[in-house]
Amino acid sequence: MSRETILNALLVAGLVALPLGAHLAGEPFTVTLATRAVILALAAVGLNIALGLGGLVSLGHAAFFGVGGYAMGILASHAQSYVPLMEAPFLIEGTKSMPVIWLVAVVASALAALLIGMLSLRTSGVYFIMITLAFGQMLYYFAIGWAPYGGEDGLPIYVRNGFPGLNTLVPIQFYALCLVVLLLALALHAVIARSPFGLALDAARQVPERVRAVGLNPTRLKLAAFTLSGAITGLSGALFADLNRFVSPTMLSWQMSGEIMVLVILGGTGRLFGPVVGAAVFVALDHHLGGLTEFWQVWLGVILLAVVLFARGGLIGLIAGERRTDA
């Protein structure tokens, strides 16, 4: 076993043990903090598929995070007001059921990612960064102007949505649900990285000409990765909205895109558990430094600058050493 494998196993054990301990000690707030970290990690796992595997520097992933959030908000708000979404040509009603909401969030954000990806992938490099950022901003302004669903004020949901067999109002149960989703997404990432698709994608990131020479279309590979990436980030958006019982345009803001990217890099780009480490550190910093000073983001900026300039493999790189090039 490599050091990274041992580290990953320890991380999973920690994800199970720490919140469980907090629950038994009667500290539901800590459980909620951990839930926040797990959901943000899921968003970053989504981005890590585009960024780490596909080499696509997307600064617009808040778009998919927000689409997932609004999918939840719209469905749940119609369910709580008993007004159907539409009546003709056929009846669509709102819902408070998480599995249905998740499905809608995944499909909607995948579609958004497909459309944005199709346009953005006509370019590459620095154009790609600017264009994804711009499309994210487009959805942000759209949400601000979207009066029926709260506009700038956002959309509160009064009761958390339900999952069959669970009481999602109990923090530890909701945490467990989010953790299972995160672990499934990590497993998916690991499977994809080893699959023929993942290998071809890796090749398309490094030498697109060769991929083209063996008869594969690198743009299509990247588009598939971008769409999948957007879908996973969209799912995390639905969970995030459920955690806060609130959706607002802030979920779509460019700062959110930046933060999701920071989570990936802080942990280690392309590392399977990079997003988990990044999100855990980010939430811990937010909580502890945020309690000490109102201006904690100055220090976040300094830490981030130090990581970029001096610790290029992220935190996992610091602990587990450089990434094996054959992985």
């Binding site: 520097v57 600064l59 930046g258 890099i265 100055v298 900026g301 300094v302 981030l304």
Partner: peptide, 16 residues
């Protein structure tokens, strides 16, 4: 990617 992150960090430092 490194340029984006480092300059994003600069935004945080400047703004805050």
């Amino acid at each position: 990617l490194d340029q984006v992150l480092a300059t994003f960090a600069l935004i945080l430092i400047f703004s805050e």
